[in-house]
């Protein structure tokens, strides 16, 4: 019977696919660990910079900066969308693109001007399909984004915001909440709200009051701290997106492997049944033939 051979062929191909998905799962796991370590290492910088800002605020400096100031009228809104370069990671790219397109439609109602930049091949093709003009596209960000490249993007946004070309910047990325929870979110990057000043929390931690000496001056430092903090914030988005991508791929490939296992099981069962019925049929034929001869 041709059916048996077909079943066997199918089972073999599913087995091969399972090998591939299992390997991809292992690779994603290894990459996830690396990306996670990087993300953890990057928190030190943010922590220290927050501390400097708090010390500045404690010394009586008013925390103001052009990046923190919302513009009076919002005419132009820039958007940055972070997706993956590769697929096979479940709904990761799809949900980001959906969230981004929805926000973009809302933006268009408020402000006409403003551009959209996309990182990741998947997002680029999805936006092209949706007929959205892409200002800049980046494909160089893989599982380990470099700060240097991210800082360039951030600097450009800072310049555009400070010079008044744009009034708001949104970013769509997958936020890493925990290993089992990642959310596609759209957040506002500029005006920058990333600097929280919690004076009550740290006011009485040590009896020794630190009277900081500021070089050149508190204002001069603040001028530099805010952009640096903003760059770190953008970098954090890229790191989060990278970690979430690997997790999404890991989960997708794990379920693909499991699914292939189930498929193999059911195919084997059908295959065995078909083989057995074939054998039975042949025996019946032989017995029938013998009886006819006798």
């Amino acid at each position: 019977m041709a059916n048996i051979r077909q079943l066997d062929k199918r089972r073999k191909s599913v087995r091969n696919i399972r090998k591939i998905t299992r390997t991809m799962e292992l690779i994603a796991t290894a990459r996830f660990k690396k990306a996670m370590d990087r993300a953890a290492a990057a928190t030190d910088y943010t922590r220290l910079i927050t501390k400097i800002v708090q010390d500045l605020a404690k010394s009586g400096t008013e925390v103001t900066h052009p990046l923190l100031q919302p513009h009076d009228s919002i005419k132009a809104i820039d958007m940055l969308v972070l997706t993956a370069n590769r697929g096979l990671c479940g709904g990761y790219n799809g949900s980001i693109v959906r969230a981004a397109l929805q926000r973009r439609a809302e933006i268009k109602e408020q402000a006409d001007a403003g551009t959209t930049s996309v990182s990741g091949k998947r997002g680029i093709s999805a936006f092209r399909f949706a007929n959205v003009p892409i200002e800049k596209s980046y494909t160089e960000f893989e599982d380990q984004p470099s700060f240097e490249a991210v800082a360039k993007i951030a600097d450009e946004l800072i310049l555009r915001y400070v010079s008044g070309q744009i009034d708001r910047v949104d970013v769509a990325y997958t936020k890493f909440v925990s290993i089992s929870k990642q959310l596609p979110v759209v957040e506002t990057l500029l005006p920058f709200g990333g600097i929280e000043i919690s004076q009550t929390e740290t006011a009485n931690t040590s009896k020794l009051r630190d009277d900081y000496e500021f070089l050149p001056s508190a204002e001069g430092i603040l001028e530099e701290v805010v952009p640096a903090s903003f760059r770190a914030r953008v970098f954090k988005c890229f790191l989060d997106a990278a970690v979430s991508e690997q997790i999404a791929r890991m989960v997708a490939m794990k379920s693909a492997t499991e699914n292939a296992g189930d498929l193999i099981k059911s195919l084997s069962r059908t295959f065995n049944r078909a083989r057995q019925s074939k054998i039975t049929q042949e025996i019946m034929e032989i017995i029938g033939g013998v009886e006819a001869l006798g």
Binding site: I52, D55, L56, D210, D211, Y212, E213, F214, L215, P216, A218, G220, I221, E224
Partner: peptide, 11 residues
């Protein structure tokens, strides 16, 4: 900076 320097923040 030598040991015991007064607290400072600088650019």
């Amino acid at each position: 900076v030598l040991p015991g320097r007064a607290p400072m923040v600088g650019r």
